[in-house]
C-alpha cells in the first residue's frame, strides 16, 4: 500500500519566548492509501491544531509533512491553494456549504474551479450524488434541506474531486443519530469500494468505531493507537471507550 501522508517530528509552538505553549509536541505517523483513520483526544489535546496543519491552513513550527509525495511545509501560498483544491477534500462539522449555491452547484464547485469540462462535471456529480443518496435534492438550496442532507452534500463536495486525502472534522457533531449513521455508512462504503483515504477527527466514540485505526492524542503527543482488525464494531467501540477512560476526562 502507498503511503498517502507522512508526518515526522511535527511541532507547533504558540507564543513568544518565556511564555511558550506547545500545542503539538512531537507527532509522527503515517496514513496509507485506503485507510479510514480516526483521531481522538480530549479538548485541548491538539486535535484541531493537527487538523489545521494537515489541511495546510496552518503551518507547523518544525517538522516535515508529506502528502501525496509533496512536502506541504515548504509550499508557497499559491501552491497551497492549488494543492488543497487538487489533493484534499474537507468535511466540516458546520457543513460550510455556500448558501448562494444549490446543492448541485456546491458539489461541483471544486470541479468548476479546476476547470473540468461541463459534461464530465455532470457525470461525476451524478455518480457521487448516487452514492450519498441525494439525487432528489440537487436543485434545492442549503437552507431548504436537513442537517444530514447538508452533511452528505458537504461529503459529496469533498469526494467529487477524488482527492488523495479526505479530512473530516467532527462530521457527525451536529447530526442526529440516524443521520450520523447514514453518513458514516456512506463514508465507510466509499472507503471500502473506492479505496478513498479518510482521516476523521471526532469526539464521539460511536462515530470513531467506524474507523479502521484510531490515534489518541493527549497534551500534544500521540498517546495510544488501536486497530480494529477483525473485531466487530461493538467490540471496537468498547475498546475505544476503555482507552478514553484511561485518557482521563475532558470530552
Amino acid at each position: 500500500m502507498k503511503t498517502i501522508l507522512r508526518a515526522r517530528n511535527v511541532q507547533k509552538v504558540y507564543g513568544s519566548k518565556g511564555n511558550q505553549y506547545k500545542a503539538l509536541a512531537d507527532i509522527n505517523f503515517d496514513i496509507k492509501e485506503g485507510e479510514f483513520i480516526g483521531i481522538m483526544g480530549p479538548s485541548g489535546a491538539g486535535k484541531s491544531t493537527l487538523l489545521n496543519i494537515l489541511s495546510t491552513i496552518d503551518t507547523p513550527t518544525s517538522g516535515e509533512i508529506m502528502i501525496a509525495d509533496q512536502n506541504i511545509v515548504t509550499m508557497k501560498e499559491e501552491q497551497l491553494s492549488d494543492f488543497r483544491r487538487n489533493n484534499l477534500g474537507f468535511i466540516f462539522q458546520d457543513y460550510n456549504l455556500l448558501d448562494t449555491l444549490t446543492v448541485k452547484e456546491n458539489i461541483l464547485l471544486p470541479l468548476a474551479l479546476s476547470k473540468v469540462p461541463a459534461k464530465e462535471i455532470e457525470n461525476r456529480v451524478e455518480k457521487i450524488a448516487d452514492t450519498f443518496g441525494i439525487q432528489g435534492i440537487l436543485d434545492k438550496y442549503p437552507y431548504h434541506i436537513s442537517g444530514g442532507q447538508k452533511q452528505r452534500t458537504a461529503a459529496s463536495r469533498a469526494m467529487v474531486t477524488k482527492p488523495s486525502l479526505i479530512l473530516a472534522d467532527e462530521p457527525t457533531g451536529a447530526l442526529d443519530s440516524k443521520s450520523a449513521i447514514d453518513l458514516l455508512e456512506s463514508l465507510t462504503a466509499l472507503n471500502e469500494q473506492n479505496l478513498s483515504t479518510i482521516m476523521m477527527v471526532t469526539h464521539d466514540a460511536f462515530a470513531a468505531s467506524f474507523c479502521k485505526r484510531i490515534l489518541f492524542i493527549k497534551d500534544g503527543g500521540i498517546y495510544a493507537e488501536i486497530h480494529k482488525l477483525q473485531q466487530s464494531r461493538q467490540e471496537f467501540f468498547q475498546k475505544i471507550l476503555d482507552v478514553l477512560a484511561s485518557l482521563g476526562g475532558g470530552h
Binding site: 491553494s81 492549488d82 488543497r84 484534499l88 456549504l97 455556500l98 448558501d99 448562494t100 471544486p110 474551479l113
Partner: peptide, 15 residues
C-alpha cells in the same frame, strides 16, 4: 464566511 469556505477548499487569493 463564504470566502473562508472558499479559501479552505482551495480558492487562491487572486481568484
Amino acid at each position: 464566511d463564504r470566502y473562508v469556505i472558499l479559501y479552505k477548499i482551495g480558492v487562491n487569493k487572486k481568484e
